[in-house]
Computed example of a mutant assay.
Amino acid sequence: MNHDLFEVEILRASRLRLSQLIDTVNHELLFTIPENFNNNIIWQIGHCITSQQRHMYMRSGLPMHISQEFMETFKIGTSPGSWITRPDVHEVKHALLFTVEQLREDLKSGVFVRYKPFSLPIGIHISNHLQALQAAIFHEAEHSGIIFSYLKLLQK
């Protein structure tokens, strides 16, 4: 297994866990914003998908595998308070797993050729698609921690 694909397996394992959460948690809880917070669980999940797509595909000059509307709903700086329509849980769940499988295929086929470097707010410089994938795993781990904290707060 090449290094890129190992990274995808880590991302896939994390996303399977989130997919299972979507399947087992009351859907209203997915949209409930815990007291003193700005976002909810479904925003956290959609945000992870959007960030990975933007940082890997958009910066590589490739089309993202999410709609413009999906991206606008979950990009950094948004929150459920800015939503015009409530996101579809099934669309989010589909994107959660589909984008990882598509990423695996795209890495195997070698579509990631160019990359427009950028720096993350935490001071890390990303200069290629593999670094973007590694950063996505870190980013999603942070948001997964937030998601499971939200869940504990909401299930009290």
Score class of each variant (00 low, 15 high):
Met1Ala: 13
Met1His: 03
Asp4Arg: 00
Leu5Val: 04
Phe6Gly: 02
Val8Thr: 12
Val8His: 07
Ile10Ala: 05
Arg12Pro: 09
Arg12Trp: 01
Ala13Leu: 08
Ser14Leu: 14
Ser14Ile: 10
Arg15Gln: 03
Arg15Cys: 07
Leu16Val: 01
Leu16Cys: 05
Leu16Ser: 06
Leu16Thr: 00
Arg17Trp: 14
Leu18Phe: 05
Ser19Asn: 07
Gln20Asp: 12
Gln20Thr: 11
Leu21Ser: 02
Leu21Trp: 02
Leu21Asp: 04
Asp23Arg: 10
Thr24Ile: 05
Thr24Glu: 15
Val25Glu: 06
Asn26Val: 07
His27Val: 12
Glu28Phe: 03
Leu29Phe: 08
Leu29Asn: 05
Leu29Asp: 05
Leu29Ala: 06
Leu30Val: 13
Leu30Asp: 06
Ile33Val: 13
Phe37Cys: 11
Ile42Gly: 14
Trp43Leu: 08
Ile45Val: 14
His47Tyr: 09
Cys48Lys: 04
Cys48Thr: 15
Ile49Cys: 07
Ile49Gly: 14
Thr50Glu: 06
Ser51Pro: 00
Gln52Arg: 14
Gln53Gly: 01
Gln53Tyr: 03
His55Val: 07
Met56Arg: 09
Ser60Gly: 10
Ser60Asn: 02
Ser60Gln: 01
Gly61Phe: 04
Leu62Thr: 15
Pro63Gly: 01
His65Met: 09
His65Ile: 11
His65Gln: 13
Ile66Arg: 05
Gln68Leu: 14
Glu69Ser: 15
Glu69Met: 06
Thr73Arg: 02
Phe74Ser: 06
Lys75Ile: 07
Ile76His: 12
Gly77Ile: 08
Gly77Arg: 11
Thr78Asp: 04
Thr78His: 04
Ser79Arg: 12
Ser79His: 05
Gly81Leu: 11
Ser82Met: 08
Trp83Ser: 02
Trp83Gln: 00
Thr85Arg: 12
Thr85Ala: 13
Thr85Lys: 15
Arg86Cys: 14
Arg86Lys: 13
Arg86Trp: 06
Arg86Ser: 13
Pro87Val: 11
Asp88Ser: 03
His90Ser: 10
His90Glu: 14
Glu91Met: 14
Ala95Leu: 12
Ala95Glu: 13
Leu97Asp: 04
Phe98Gly: 01
Thr99Asp: 13
Val100Gln: 07
Gln102Asn: 09
Leu103Asn: 05
Leu103His: 05
Leu103Val: 01
Arg104Trp: 00
Arg104Tyr: 02
Glu105Asp: 08
Glu105Pro: 00
Asp106Ser: 07
Lys108Glu: 10
Ser109Gln: 07
Ser109Asp: 02
Val113Met: 06
Arg114Trp: 08
Arg114Thr: 05
Lys116Trp: 00
Lys116Ser: 12
Pro117Ile: 03
Phe118Asn: 01
Phe118Lys: 09
Phe118Ser: 04
Ser119Asn: 06
Leu120Cys: 06
Leu120Arg: 12
Ile124Gln: 08
Ile126Pro: 13
Ile126Gln: 03
Asn128Asp: 15
His129Met: 00
Ala132Thr: 10
Ala132Leu: 03
Leu133Pro: 03
Gln134Met: 06
Gln134Glu: 11
Ala135Asn: 12
Ala136Arg: 01
Ile137Leu: 12
Ile137Ala: 14
Ile137Lys: 09
Phe138Val: 13
Phe138Glu: 07
Phe138Tyr: 13
His139Ile: 08
His139Ser: 04
Glu142Asp: 03
His143Ser: 02
His143Pro: 09
His143Trp: 02
Ser144Trp: 00
Gly145Asp: 05
Ile146Pro: 00
Ile147Ala: 13
Phe148Gly: 04
Tyr150Ile: 10
Lys152Arg: 10
Leu153Val: 08
Leu154Tyr: 08
Leu154Glu: 03
